[in-house]
């Protein structure tokens, strides 16, 4: 399978990365090179093979359903580019 520039622009939007016409063109070539490389996986007979979900045969550990952490609002917003009273500030999203 290969991608065209229209698909690349759509994927860039899905990934929330702004791309210029020039970027999109370059990426189309690069993505097709990588997709061409991974194409060989289709040769492998995977009938009856389970997809891997965990490399270690273990059940995921579960902790008790209890509060173990919290009260750190100031720590959580400490690295944000824009905050006010322990809230993250973002551009207006509703009219």
């Amino acid at each position: 399978m290969s991608v065209d520039i229209k698909t690349v622009k759509r994927v860039a939007h899905l990934a929330r990365i702004a791309v210029s016409e020039e970027d999109a063109e370059r990426m189309t070539g690069e993505l097709n090179a990588i997709l061409g490389f991974v194409e060989q996986l289709n040769e492998v007979d995977v009938s009856g093979v389970e997809p891997m979900t965990s490399v270690t045969p273990m059940a995921m550990k579960k902790r008790q359903d209890g509060v173990t952490d919290g009260g750190k609002a100031a720590d959580i917003v400490a690295n944000a580019p824009a905050t006010e009273e322990n809230f993250f500030l973002v551009p207006k999203v509703v009219e």
Binding site: M1, V38, L41, N42, V44, V46, V49, E50, P51, M52
Partner: peptide, 12 residues
């Protein structure tokens, strides 16, 4: 076509 196939190959 991609992710599921790759995870199966990973099992192999």
């Amino acid at each position: 076509a991609y992710y599921l196939q790759a995870q199966k190959v990973r099992t192999l």
